[in-house]
Design a protein around this nucleic acid. Sequence first.
DNA 1: AGTTAACTATTAGATAAGCTAACTATAACC
DNA 2: GGTTATAGTTAGCTTATCTAATAGTTAACT
Lengths: 135, 135
Amino acid sequence: MRVVRTEMRARRTPDLTVPQFRALAFVRRHRGASLSEAADHIGLTPPSMSKLMDGLVARGLVTREGHARDRRRVTLALTRRGRGTLRAASAATRAQLAARLAALPSAERATVAAAMRALRAVFAPDPAGGGAASE
Amino acid sequence: MRVVRTEMRARRTPDLTVPQFRALAFVRRHRGASLSEAADHIGLTPPSMSKLMDGLVARGLVTREGHARDRRRVTLALTRRGRGTLRAASAATRAQLAARLAALPSAERATVAAAMRALRAVFAPDPAGGGAASE
DNA sequence: AGTTAACTATTAGATAAGCTAACTATAACC
DNA sequence: GGTTATAGTTAGCTTATCTAATAGTTAACT
């Protein structure tokens, strides 16, 4: 995963930091989620998530609106631009990782995939982030 | 690796951040290294490494002395306390990871180990960090 | 109904990690 | 000996985190 981060940092295409990427991915997967929900799932405190969202809202990637019934809450969603940015970042990262992994013989790629499944079972991270690691 | 980081953060025993841990590990492995060497190996710019070392020197974990022949350079070394702190952090992290991995059947642990070897070959990280992952 | 308790989000203020640009001091080169 | 390159630091910026404190809302319980 260190390498994943490194690759993501190298990919300057849409210029998202790792926490920004994670937050966008969470919002994509949970449209209309609240700030606390995002903080919980990603493992940040609410103030941290609040500030993170400040930046994403300021960049026009996320909308933050008041909840209809519970006026304490906030409703998060991706903008069209947010979806595009996330998709581009995801594709770029995936491509770079795939390029690295392509250097492995396919038997070893299979071993890596099996290890990932085993580790996911033990650490049970949110299936959002690492899902669909087909290549 | 994300999980490694999380575990390390959770381990509050000697209270080292991940970059601090990495810097200490580098200095342990390369006694008398210069600042630039440390920055290069860890993948930071010299100013970042300089500031990181500021903190470690202030905490009495690292010594930073002038080089005998080349007075531009700086010579880094661990103090006794630095060695102890690093050892404690390393042991705590390792123990927590081992506890998690112990939940896996041994065949799957072997798969994980094989995957790590394969990935190391592709990404070729500094052998200092991930070495000796026996358990 | 009215007060208290719980919850949601933000602000304030701190530390740490990073970067680039600019500077200082020293060594190397010709 | 004067120019060029190298090593490290300082200055100033952004982002990521945290805890503590605050404000506004809703729920809960007399």
